[in-house]
Amino acid sequence: MANTNHVTTKWLGEMTFESTNPSNHTLRIDASPDDGGKGSGLRPKALMLSALAGCSGLDVASLIKKMKLDVDDFQIETIANLTDEHPKYYDAVTIEYHFYGSNLKEEKLQKAVDLSVEKYCGVMEMFRKFANLNIEILYHHK
């Protein structure tokens, strides 16, 4: 049998939903005030960007540990272009990997990112089906 994820998303009234995750954590989804919501939750399209960064980030963090790399800090900036026409979707996404530290091994960090982008990250593969992806790696030496 194929691996499946089951998520339950319950309407809490107005424009607010609560969505469960297979890990038993929940998150709140709400529309912006401009769209009739109260802005009390996460926006669905932005959540997709968080999923993309989180998926790749988990890969890279795991590889940093496996490769015993010295990284003080690491963050991913995900900048997406939304189409003008409905249904609006992301047609281009820039994913910036920012590494901070005094002993950054750039070649190995590049390899970690490449492995995530090209081999491991399933969310990245899903995004490839509808968006042009631009991967950038920035090293901030202390």
Rank of each mutant, 00 (worst) to 15 (best):
R28Y: 11
T94I: 10
G57W: 02
L69I: 07
G37N: 03
L115T: 13
H98L: 12
L133V: 03
G57I: 07
T78G: 02
L82K: 11
V93C: 04
D30M: 09
G13D: 04
A131C: 04
N134S: 11
K10Q: 13
C121S: 09
R43Q: 14
E136Y: 06
K66Q: 10
T8N: 15
L12Y: 03
A31C: 09
A46K: 07
L42R: 14
S102P: 02
K45F: 12
F130G: 15
I137V: 14
N132L: 11
V117A: 13
Y97N: 02
G13P: 00
M15D: 04
D30P: 00
F127W: 10
L133I: 14
P22Q: 04
H6V: 14
I64D: 01
N21R: 08
S56Q: 03
G57L: 05
A31Y: 07
L58C: 09
E136Q: 14
A61C: 08
L63E: 02
M15A: 14
A53I: 05
I64S: 01
P33R: 11
A53Q: 00
F127Y: 12
Y139Q: 01
H141E: 11
F17C: 09
G39K: 06
K129Y: 07
C55R: 00
L109F: 06
E107K: 11
D70F: 10
L42A: 15
L69H: 02
K88L: 11
A53C: 02
G57Q: 01
V60H: 00
T78D: 02
D114W: 08
K129R: 15
T94H: 11
F130H: 14
Q110W: 07
K88E: 10
Y139A: 05
K68L: 11
Y120D: 02
D30R: 03
S32D: 15
Y89K: 13
D91W: 04
V60T: 02
S23M: 14
V71L: 03
A131H: 04
V60Q: 00
A53K: 00
I76G: 00
T83E: 05
S62H: 08
N132A: 13
R28C: 11
N24G: 15
A46V: 11
Y90K: 03
I76Q: 01
E14T: 07
K108E: 09
K68S: 10
A112Y: 05
A92M: 09
E118M: 13
G101E: 03
C121F: 07
I29C: 04
S102I: 07
K111E: 15
S56I: 05
V93R: 01
K142W: 08
K105G: 06
I76F: 03
A31K: 05
Y139K: 00
L58M: 12
G13V: 09
K38L: 12
K142P: 01
L104C: 01
N81D: 15
P44L: 08
K88F: 14
G36M: 05
V113Q: 00
Y97I: 08
N3Y: 12
G54I: 08
I79M: 09
E107T: 10
H141I: 15
S56N: 02
G36R: 02
I137N: 05
E107G: 07
D91Y: 06
G39C: 10
Y139S: 01
P22C: 08
F99V: 05
D72T: 08
A31W: 09
M48W: 13
K142S: 15
S102C: 08
D91R: 01
